[in-house]
């Protein structure tokens, strides 16, 4: 998110009472209504406690934020469990790769059994599938799992497909959210995801194979 130089206090500081939530919240440079609460980069994720996470989330909810987005660390460990525990909705991000789809399946199992809503027998967490790094040309050539394959296996509603693109690394290198890139398929695809999350019904884009042009063939595909 490009705010690394502005982090003074993080999530663990707030949980331990070393800083107030207001001190730790960082206003985003790009978006007026977005605030970032950094996860601790120094202490390991075991420093998070379920009670502490709940307390901070309740305080955030009391501050009239419309959405609280908990970014889960990659992989299946305590950090991910903490991020999902109090969720109302979950966006499960998966790549068209065996290991990624497999982990997503395990996460879905946990969403349905280990989270607060599951334990208290409330209405289950609303699950969305987001497929990233999707390359329709490779899918057409039979070199990549198709979105139908992935949906077939995970069986939750699809909220979007993000095409594989060099733009993502470029954006990440600069600390710019990919959704803010100009003239990028990735940004468009992410905007579609947001619209769908907010309830709009819009068709998928960038999921059909495109034939490479003559020049691209001559000079080799990227």
């Amino acid at each position: 998110m490009g705010c690394e130089r502005r982090v003074v206090y993080d999530f663990v500081n707030v949980i331990n009472g070393e800083a107030t939530l207001n001190q730790a919240l960082i206003k985003d440079k790009h978006s007026d209504h977005l605030y970032v609460l950094a996860a601790s980069q120094t202490r390991d994720k075991e420093a998070l406690t379920q009670d502490g996470v709940e307390r901070v989330l309740r305080e955030l909810a009391g501050m009239d934020f419309e959405f609280i987005v908990c970014d889960s660390p990659a992989g299946i460990e305590t950090g991910a469990m903490m991020a999902m525990h109090f969720a109302d909705e979950a966006v499960v991000v998966t790549n068209p790769e065996v290991s990624s789809v497999r982990d997503s399946d395990r996460i879905l199992g946990m969403l349905g059994s280990k989270t607060m809503r599951a334990i208290q027998g409330q209405e289950p967490i609303k699950e969305h599938l987001l497929i990233t790094r999707y390359n329709p040309n490779r899918v057409q050539e039979g070199q990549m799992l198709s979105l139908e394959d992935i949906q077939d296996i995970l069986r939750i509603p699809l909220i979007g497909v993000i095409p594989e693109s060099e733009d993502v690394l470029q954006a990440s290198n600069q600390g710019v959210p990919a959704v803010l890139l100009e003239k990028s398929d990735v940004a468009e695809a992410y905007k579609d995801v947001v619209d769908r999350f907010l309830g709009k019904d819009i068709p998928l884009r960038f999921t059909e194979a495109v034939k490479p042009g003559l020049l691209q063939r001559v000079f080799g595909r990227r």
């Binding site: 050539e141 990549m144 198709s146 394959d149």
Partner: peptide, 9 residues
């Protein structure tokens, strides 16, 4: 290249 998607599935 070999069609590996079906193997993956």
């Amino acid at each position: 290249k070999k069609k590996t998607a079906s193997v993956a599935k």
